[in-house]
Amino acid sequence: MEILVCVKRVPDTAENEIEVAADGSDIERDDLVYSVNEWDNYAVEEAIQLVDKAGGSVTVVSVGDEEAEEVVRREMAMGANNGLLLSDDAFEGSDGKGTATILKAAVEKGNYDLILTGALADDGAGQVGGMLAAMLDLPFASVVNRIEVMDDKKLKIGREIEGGNQEMHEIDLPCVLSIQTGINEPRYVGIRGIRKVASVEIPVWGTSELGVAADSVGAAAARVKRLDYFVPDLGEGAEILEGSLEEVADKLIEMLKAKGGIK
């Protein structure tokens, strides 16, 4: 099975506090630690496990600037066979549809049976997978937390819906699936793995290699445009307890007792 996994380089929220820049035009990017989007890591692990069982190869692809190469390389260290970076000044400022348009062009240059994305990325949209499927006229399923290969024409998949219930479907190949966290346990990538792929060439494709019209992507084509970043003022918020750890604990215990929080 030939599998393409779409991965995005995002600020790691476990490592950073995300703050709005003074003029509101962006977040503070200076000291951010970036990593591969959490959901995409599960998608790559799933692809590797599927190929381990059914044969074939895993290709990871990212749309981004040259620094996005590092996440492609990281996922190759995990065990993906090929990497691709889609990068061009014309791609900058793309909305979800723009990103899907770029990815679609890359998909059409290959011959994939299965395309995986993460269910969600840093922008909280959860849109690229579903858009890509519609552009390619392929069946789609979101928030997938189980994949079983039935034969070379179809998969049995589970979607994790509300309440943690699992909706089972049979889906025709080729198809696009967006992967939910928890579907597997992504393997650890050590220094050894990183070193092994350190010098692998990762092809970089832009508008001309992909045959994408520059005006169909990027900021100019975007129908959803971000105006600013801000932190909303949501009323009073929490009463913050101040003092030493012991003082805070004493204050909190009084409050908890009053609310029935200590039995």
């Binding site: 979800g96 959860g126 858009m131 519609a134 928030v143 959803v224």
Partner: peptide, 19 residues
């Protein structure tokens, strides 16, 4: 909604606004 909408917007050639 996550399952339905992004693809629906593409097929209608309309704008998708998530969440």
């Amino acid at each position: 909604g996550m399952d339905l909408s992004p693809g629906l917007a593409i097929m209608l050639d309309s704008t998708f606004v998530p969440d």
